[in-house]
């Protein structure tokens, strides 16, 4: 048994090292100066934070970070609110054509996002939302996947709980707010983390709808650094990359327990 454990842990440590290498190397580069990077050093000889100062200096990294944070939080809140309300309707309210509408809902998952980009762009443009947080966030509020995820969770809530609340005269919204949401904490956190990360890492859409420094998000900023004259200065680029990884890592650590539970839910009972 200990032999086997030793083997398993060795393999796990190796895979973790392989997985973490790019991030570790990026961090390492962010502390080197240009010459060292070109020498191919793995560990900086004289670690310095100069690259970080430079990153904030040369591009408006802070503005980009704030933009990304605002957009990601907006999308997260929008998706959680709309998905949970839609899922509640699909589970607890009886209406004609419920099954059909739900199928249509799911069918939208089959349409790749890129295919709807042009009409979305035209809509956002005509609303005058180019270069604004609304243009970056509102098109993502409705999420079939989120509705599906939460519907599956809500379906595990015994229907008698809803009926008991009806008999007691509790309003639908109060039942939703005081019973359905609290007992569904885990999938709600899962969905929030998923929404936040997806939006944070979004590249194509922000590239389309923003063209001013005031409105850009971090991913665009990074790309911009690479293609600008500072491209050769990898230390600065990596310093910026490390800066934008931090929020996502924080979120992952904070939500790790819930996230794991959410993804394996129903596996054991």
């Amino acid at each position: 048994m200990t032999m086997r454990n030793a083997l398993v842990y060795t393999l796990l440590v190796l895979s973790a090292a392989v997985m973490l290498f790019p991030i570790g190397y990026a961090f390492s580069i962010s502390l080197m100066d240009g010459g060292e990077v070109l020498k191919g050093n793995l560990i900086p000889e004289e670690p310095s934070l100069a690259n970080y100062v430079a990153a904030f200096d040369r591009i408006p990294l802070l503005t980009y970070l704030v933009n990304s944070l605002v957009v990601a939080l907006l999308v997260m809140v929008g998706q959680v609110v709309l998905s949970s309300l839609a899922a509640f309707a699909f589970v607890f309210i009886d209406f004609k054509g419920k099954a059909l509408i739900f199928m249509l809902f799911l069918a939208t998952m089959m349409v790749p996002w890129e295919a709807t980009m042009v009409p979305n762009f035209l809509t956002v443009q005509s609303l005058g939302w180019l270069n604004s947080v609304w243009g970056l966030s509102v098109p993502f509020f409705a999420l079939a996947f989120g509705t599906f995820l939460l519907r599956q969770q809500f379906k595990t809530i015994p229907h008698e709980m809803y009926e008991a609340s009806q008999i007691a005269g509790i309003s639908r919204f109060r039942f939703f707010w005081n019973v359905v949401l609290p007992v569904s904490k885990t999938p709600l956190v899962t969905l929030s983390v998923y929404s936040f990360l997806t939006t944070w890492n979004m590249y194509l859409w922000p590239l389309l709808v923003t063209n001013t420094e005031q409105a850009r998000t971090v991913q665009i900023g990074i790309k911009q650094m690479q293609s600008n004259e500072i491209a050769s200065d990898w230390g600065v680029v990596m310093a910026a990359v490390v800066m934008i990884i931090i929020p996502t890592l924080l979120l992952l650590f904070a939500g790790q327990k819930q996230l794991q539970e959410g993804l394996t839910q129903g596996a054991i009972k």
């Binding site: 015994p158 008698e160 709980m161 009926e163 008991a164 609340s165 009806q166 008999i167 007691a168 005269g169 509790i170 005081n178 019973v179 609290p182 007992v183």
Partner: peptide, 29 residues
């Protein structure tokens, strides 16, 4: 509506709210 019929109901599986204390379960509504 069920709430207008002046009745209470006890379900087979009790239908208690799992995240609420007994007191909240009793007073909710």
């Amino acid at each position: 509506k069920p709430s207008e019929r002046q009745l209470s109901m006890v379900f087979q599986n009790y239908a208690l709210y799992p995240h609420m204390s007994v007191e909240k379960n009793i007073t909710f509504g």
